[in-house]
Amino acid sequence: MQSHTRCLRVLDDSAYNPIQIALLFGNADLTRLALFGIVRVAAEQRAVWVLDGGNSFDAYFVARLARGWGMAPEVVLSRIQLSRAFTCYQMSELITRRLGAAIHPSASATIACLDLLETFYDDDVALADAIRLVRTVAARLGDLAKRGNHILITAREPRAGLRERMVLLDLLKASAQQVERVDAPAPTSTARTVATQRQLVFARGDLVNGTNVTFVYASDFERANRAGEIQACFAARGSGSV
């Protein structure tokens, strides 16, 4: 369960960080997971470029998280630059043309592609076209990574009935240095309702050293936050690892 923390480490803006592209996939709420990393980066006074393919960026969650860390939500939100894509052609345009033009060519940028494959799973788009576009997108992300940018990608698997589109996820996996699967744990009977409705929120536990990580759900998060557990978890955020 510590794997995703290795992926989130891609967002560390340090010269010795060997990971340039990390991919998180699975059936967990990966956007929420990624938002922890994104907020941490923004809290360190660095800009983050978010490309959202699933219209899943939750600004209110970011604000709550920032507040929980003692940061002004407005400040954190203003450091996040975002663009949503609703078709795979828009996502492709965004990555291949707009992103490169937006980020500073000489400084390394932090980029998060949320639900990157969502628009490519659209069954109105021919599979051959989707494959071609994902290849182009993956190549472009590879170029950006070589220029020193750090890229976190999240992608869910295609739903039943679109299994032939698994090839798109395989293409992305091949382009990333760190690939990890994160699934929501089977809900316990008491947590079932919460799990199905709100899904996985984030990892807690020994986040600092990346061991013994367990999952909690939204309702637990609220409870834990009140109990001060969350503050304890994030007290060590200055250490550079989540």
């Binding site: 600004a59 939100l77 203003s78 630059q81 975002l82 894509a85 828009q90 345009e93 965004l94 707009r98």
Partner: peptide, 8 residues
Amino acid sequence: PEAWKSGL
């Protein structure tokens, strides 16, 4: 695509 905008 959507033009870049901040979270705010």
